[in-house]
Amino acid sequence: MSGNSSWMNSLVNRMATSKFFNYLAGHVLVPYWAWRTPVYAQHGGPRATIPPGDNMQRMMNLILPLKDKTAVGRAKAALAIASNLDEIYAGLDNVGTVHFARFVIIENNMCMISSYDGDFSNYIRDFVAQLGTVFDSVVALIEGGDDMIPTKENIDAFINWVHDRDVYQIPDTATDLLRYGTIGHSAAKADGPDDLRLMPRALILQLHKNPNSLLGSGYRGYPGLSVAQIRHKMGLGW
């Protein structure tokens, strides 16, 4: 790479990873391009697809900001779970499609993380039918949750409310980033042309809209199996 501009070239190469450029990118370029080429904030949770394997062990990651951001608020949330273990266990057993579920407090957010089979709305609807009052006591501690109570009588709105708080899942198939979400571009056009080099920007702009995200659909040790299939095959009953 001889030539007069080669020092300039290596300077620019170094610049790409410099603090200055990082600052410029994050604080100026991202807002500019977010304005110039807006994208839709994609919904949280997995996309609807037909193949059965896509509908097993789907991941839910709810981020629910606590109203009270002190230790008292966090303790209230912890108690709401701890004092309702029977309700939660029986409810999840009766929903029948949940592999794992856990409640985690992270940075004053109540996080509900689970892996479930089938459709998201059905899962939430069945769960609310089983333990609406527990949901009510948790939702009462969450910012923006008051309008949802009692959840059993606001079931459609509550399912939407929960869906809106399930984090965005970055697609495993990278080109989906180019296809979906760009306003007035590409998705409508049947076949390109695209600019694959803009893929990183597509990701950046989507993460600008969706600050929380699940990176890909996540690893599964035994993909394609439902809770009941595992219980059935392992002789645990269902």
Partner: peptide, 16 residues
């Protein structure tokens, strides 16, 4: 060329 790389970077496009 260096200027194209800068243009790319300004578009949040990784330079070739």
């Amino acid at each position: 060329p260096w200027w194209r790389k800068i243009l790319d970077m300004l578009q949040l496009k990784p330079p070739n």
